[in-house]
C-alpha cells in the first residue's frame, strides 16, 4: 500500500503543468466567488487526479510491471480509494485556507451553510470515485473514457426523461426532499455516497482480480 501511494504521489508531484493551473484556478474561484464554488471545484479536481493515476499506470503497459511488484491485487483498489479520500481531504483543507485568506483580505465571507456545502462536496467527490474507479479498472484506455462519459450522459438523460415523463411524481419527490432539514439531507447524501463507495470498492476489487496484464 505504502509503495503504491508513494508512486501515485510522485506521479502527481511531477505533473508540473497541471498542478499550478489547479492552484491558480482555486485561488481565483475563492476570490471571485463567494458561494463556495472553489470547494466543489477542488474536490472534483481531487477525484480527476485520482483517476488520472490509473491512466498513468496503464500508459506504456506500465501496469504489467506494476502488478509484478510485491502487493496484492486488492490492495491496488484500496490504495486508489485511499488516494481519492486523501485528495478530497487535501482539497477541503486548501479550500479552507483560501477562504481564510479571503476572509482576512475582504472580510465578506459568509459562513452560513458552510457545513452543508462541505458535506455535499465530499459526497459528490465520493460518488464520483465510487463510479470512476471501478469503471477505469474494468475498461482500459479510450474504452474506459467512453464508458465513463456514457454513464454520466445516461444518468443525466435518464433523470431528465424521468422528470418529463412523470412530472407529478418528480415534483412530489422534490417536495419530499425539500421538506427534510438541509443538514439531515446532506448527511443522508453522505451516507448514500459512503454506501456507494463500498459497492464501488467491492466491484473494482472483483474486476481487478480477473484482469489479465
Amino acid at each position: 500500500m505504502k509503495g503504491l501511494l508513494i508512486k501515485d504521489l510522485c506521479i502527481l508531484k511531477n505533473q508540473k503543468r497541471i498542478l499550478p493551473i489547479y492552484a491558480l484556478l482555486s485561488v481565483w474561484f475563492t476570490v471571485v466567488y463567494d458561494d463556495g464554488f472553489a470547494f466543489s471545484f477542488l474536490v472534483m479536481m481531487g477525484t480527476i487526479l485520482t483517476t488520472s493515476t490509473i491512466s498513468h499506470d496503464e500508459a506504456d503497459h506500465s501496469q504489467t510491471y506494476l502488478f509484478a511488484l510485491p502487493f496484492e491485487r486488492k490492495t491496488y483498489v484500496a490504495e486508489k480509494f485511499l488516494l481519492g479520500g486523501l485528495l478530497i481531504l487535501a482539497s477541503l483543507v486548501l479550500s479552507m485556507v483560501c477562504t481564510g485568506i479571503r476572509a482576512l483580505f475582504f472580510r465578506d465571507v459568509h459562513m452560513e451553510g458552510l457545513l452543508e456545502l462541505i458535506i455535499v462536496s465530499i459526497s459528490s467527490g465520493l460518488l464520483i470515485l465510487a463510479v470512476m474507479i471501478p469503471l477505469r479498472i474494468r475498461f482500459s484506455g479510450d474504452q474506459g473514457r467512453i464508458i465513463l462519459y456514457s454513464v454520466f450522459a445516461m444518468v443525466a438523460l435518464g433523470g431528465a426523461a424521468l422528470s418529463n415523463l412523470l412530472p407529478g411524481v418528480s415534483s412530489q419527490v422534490s417536495e419530499s426532499f425539500l421538506s427534510i432539514h438541509p443538514v439531515i439531507l446532506t448527511f443522508i447524501l453522505l451516507l448514500v455516497s459512503l454506501i456507494l463507495v463500498v459497492a464501488g470498492f467491492i466491484l473494482a476489487r472483483r474486476w481487478i482480480m480477473k484482469k489479465e496484464f
Partner: peptide, 20 residues
C-alpha cells in the same frame, strides 16, 4: 516493454522500491 510509469524519475523509483 514495461516498467515504471514514464512520469517518474530515478529518485522517485528509488523511493518507491524502498517502500515496496
Amino acid at each position: 516493454e514495461t516498467g515504471f510509469s514514464g512520469e517518474l524519475t530515478v529518485p522517485d523509483v528509488k523511493k518507491i522500491l524502498g517502500a515496496f
